[in-house]
Amino acid sequence: KSPLTGYVRFMNERREQLRAKRPEVPFPEITRMLGNEWSKLPPEEKQRYLDEADRDKERYMKELEQY
């Protein structure tokens, strides 16, 4: 499975939280809201997602080498 970027990891995590709080909001609007939230997120909060993405990318590269 391909590695996910930090942005995609953030979107996946927050999308479920936002949909639970506001189920009436259409999917494209949720994506737009989360995109704005990501762009305003402080670098230190973004870093968690970026670090997870880096670890996932390393895992993926190792799997490719073994293939």
Rank of each mutant, 00 (worst) to 15 (best):
Lys62Pro: 11
Tyr60Asp: 14
Arg22Gly: 12
Phe10Gln: 05
Arg14Leu: 02
Phe10Tyr: 11
Arg22Phe: 14
Pro26Ala: 13
Pro43His: 01
Leu64Asn: 14
Ser2Cys: 14
Glu29Cys: 01
Glu44Tyr: 01
Leu50Met: 14
Lys57His: 15
Pro3Thr: 10
Lys46Leu: 03
Glu45Phe: 01
Lys1Thr: 04
Gln66Cys: 09
Tyr60Leu: 11
Lys1Tyr: 05
Ile30Thr: 06
Lys1Asn: 12
Tyr49Pro: 01
Glu29Lys: 02
Lys62Gly: 12
Gln17Thr: 06
Ala53Gly: 14
Val8Tyr: 10
Pro42Val: 00
Glu58Ile: 06
Met11Tyr: 10
Asn12His: 05
Leu50Val: 14
Glu63Phe: 01
Lys62Thr: 13
Asp54Ile: 08
Asp56Cys: 03
Lys1Ile: 13
Arg32Ser: 08
Ala53Tyr: 02
Gln47Ile: 00
Gln66Pro: 11
Arg19Ser: 13
Arg19Asn: 11
Glu44Ile: 05
Glu65Met: 08
Arg14Ser: 01
Arg55Val: 12
Leu18Ile: 09
Thr5Tyr: 06
Leu4Asp: 15
Thr31His: 08
Pro3Glu: 14
Ala20Phe: 03
Gln47His: 02
Pro28Met: 13
Glu45His: 00
Lys57Gln: 11
Tyr49Phe: 08
Thr5Gln: 12
Arg32Gln: 10
Ile30Lys: 02
Lys21Tyr: 04
Arg19Met: 14
Arg55His: 09
Thr5Ile: 10
Glu44Asp: 10
Leu4Val: 04
Glu24Ile: 04
Asp54Lys: 10
Glu16Gln: 10
Arg59Glu: 13
Arg32Val: 08
Leu41Gln: 01
Thr5Leu: 12
Glu24Ala: 08
Tyr7Lys: 15
Ala53Trp: 01
Asn12Ile: 11
Tyr60Asn: 13
Glu24Leu: 09
Asn12Phe: 05
Arg59Val: 13
Arg15Val: 15
Glu45Leu: 04
Leu18Thr: 02
Arg48Ile: 08
Gln17Asn: 05
Glu58Gly: 09
Phe10Thr: 02
Met61Gln: 11
Arg48Gln: 09
Phe27Gly: 15
Arg15Ser: 13
Ser39Phe: 08
Tyr49Trp: 14
Glu13Ala: 06
Arg32Ala: 08
Tyr49Gly: 02
Asn12Lys: 12
Ile30Asn: 03
Lys21Leu: 14
Leu64Pro: 14
Val25Phe: 02
Pro26Asn: 10
Leu18Phe: 13
Glu24Pro: 08
Pro3Val: 10
Arg9His: 06
Tyr7Gln: 13
Ala20Ser: 09
Asp54Gln: 09
Met11Thr: 10
Ala20Met: 09
Arg22Ile: 13
Glu45Ile: 08
Phe27Leu: 15
Glu45Pro: 00
Lys1Trp: 04
Arg15Gly: 12
Thr5Gly: 07
Arg19Tyr: 06
Leu64Arg: 14
Val8His: 11
Pro43Asp: 13
Tyr7Phe: 10
Glu45Val: 01
Pro28Trp: 10
Glu63Met: 05
Val8Gly: 11
Pro28Gly: 14
Glu65Phe: 02
Lys1Phe: 15
Glu24His: 04
Glu24Asp: 12
Ala53His: 03
Thr5Glu: 07
Thr31Trp: 04
Glu45Gln: 05
Arg22Trp: 15
Arg15Thr: 15
Arg32Lys: 09
Lys21Glu: 15
Arg32Glu: 07
Pro43Tyr: 03
Glu16Ala: 07
Arg48Leu: 05
Tyr7Asp: 07
Lys57Asp: 12
Pro23Trp: 00
Tyr7Pro: 05
Trp38Arg: 01
Tyr60Ser: 15
Arg32Trp: 03
Leu64Phe: 15
Leu41Thr: 01
Pro26Trp: 00
Met11Gln: 04
Gln47Asp: 01
Ala53Phe: 00
Phe27His: 14
Tyr7Trp: 08
Leu18Met: 11
Phe10Val: 04
Phe10Asp: 03
Arg48Ser: 08
Met11Arg: 02
Arg15Met: 09
Lys62Asn: 14
Pro43Ile: 06
Leu50Ala: 15
Glu44Asn: 08
Tyr60Gly: 14
Tyr49Arg: 05
Pro3Asn: 14
Leu4Ile: 14
Tyr7Ala: 06
